[in-house]
């Protein structure tokens, strides 16, 4: 009973980690970089949604507008901040991402203050289908996760734009030769990642509450999920996200205690990287000398 409860709420959190991990993979596939600012970008998007809801807009309108703003914002960040460092060493990119996360954190603190806010959920009321193990929000957030996954899958599988995106991630030179505007596709990847991250933020905020540092732990678990599933494989990362969510809850509840749950992510990340760096479903990296 208690176990099932932990398992179920682990699934709900895992869904949030899964979409965060998906956002990370989106950028990794296009640029071979891990965006350390992903968490703070999602947090800032969530504040935008909170502001709209607070000023009386209906939830789903705020939701959609936030996703759109995040998409455009993500593209803007890629064009203005990230693009100039495209050929720089990895260290420079990591430093720029850390800089970005500092800026979003400060911006949120400046505009909205550091006090903790509660965040509405559209899934109120009684648990769904008499599901005693999950609250309505947890069920709803799992549903949203699957809707996001289905949309992303459909976008990449069935639209010309999705095909162009995949092409420019896999082989930028050939993609450019057949007329794909690779530069814009990279910006688009960032936009998509920011939009997906915004959804994760809005689903997480009712659970962890809204404050400028809310995404720290979530980003870490998303890293763990992405590494576990294979950081170059979107579906692997999604599976990894769910696994990490469930593991975090079960291990936290029965093995080490909830107050050291973050070390679970640390152990997963280091363990996977040492034992099988490509993750469960990732491709092995072969370097040419």
């Amino acid at each position: 009973m208690e176990f099932l409860h932990q398992f179920a709420s682990g699934l709900a959190l895992g869904g949030i980690y899964a979409i965060m991990a998906l956002a990370l993979v989106m950028i990794y596939q296009a640029t071979q970089l891990v965006n350390f600012a992903q968490g703070e970008m999602a947090m800032f998007s969530t504040y935008l949604a909170w502001q709209m809801i607070d000023s009386g807009q209906p939830y789903w309108l705020a939701f959609i507008v936030t996703v759109l703003i995040s998409f455009v914002g993500g593209m803007g960040i890629e064009r203005i901040v990230v693009r100039p460092f495209a050929k720089a060493p990895i260290l420079a990119s990591v430093i720029v991402f850390i800089g970005l996360s500092f800026i979003f954190n400060a911006l949120a603190g400046w505009l909205y203050g550091y006090s903790i806010q509660s965040f509405d959920t559209p899934f109120n009321g009684r648990p769904w289908f008499g599901n005693v193990y999950m609250s309505a929000h947890e069920s709803g957030s799992v549903l949203v996760t699957f809707v996001v996954l289905a949309l992303v899958y459909a976008f990449f599988r069935f639209t010309p734009l999705g095909l162009a995106l995949r092409a420019s991630a896999q082989n930028p030179v050939s993609a450019r030769l057949v007329g794909v505007r690779v530069g814009w596709m990279l910006a688009m990847g960032w936009g998509l990642a920011a939009a997906i991250g915004a959804v994760a933020g809005m689903m997480a905020a009712p659970i962890v509450y809204l404050d400028p540092n809310m995404m720290g732990g979530i980003l870490l678990y998303a890293f763990a999920g992405a590494v576990l599933g294979g950081i170059d494989n979107p579906w692997g990362a999604v599976v990894g996200g769910f696994v990490v969510g469930v593991m975090e809850n079960i291990v936290g509840a029965y093995l080490v205690g909830a107050e050291v749950k973050l070390s679970v992510a640390l152990v997963i990340i280091i363990g996977v990287l040492v034992v099988k760096p490509s993750g469960l479903f990732g491709r092995r990296i072969v370097a040419r000398v």
């Binding site: 071979q32 970089l33 891990v34 350390f36 990895i90 260290l91 990591v94 720290g216 732990g217 870490l220 890293f223 763990a224 590494v227 050291v260 973050l262 070390s263 992510a265 640390l266 990340i269 280091i270 990287l273 760096p277």
Partner: peptide, 16 residues
């Protein structure tokens, strides 16, 4: 761990 992965692992260390 190549550059990026080491950054990830040490980031996890710092958070935990």
């Amino acid at each position: 761990l190549g550059g990026l992965y080491l950054a990830l692992a040490t980031f996890a260390l710092a958070v935990a």
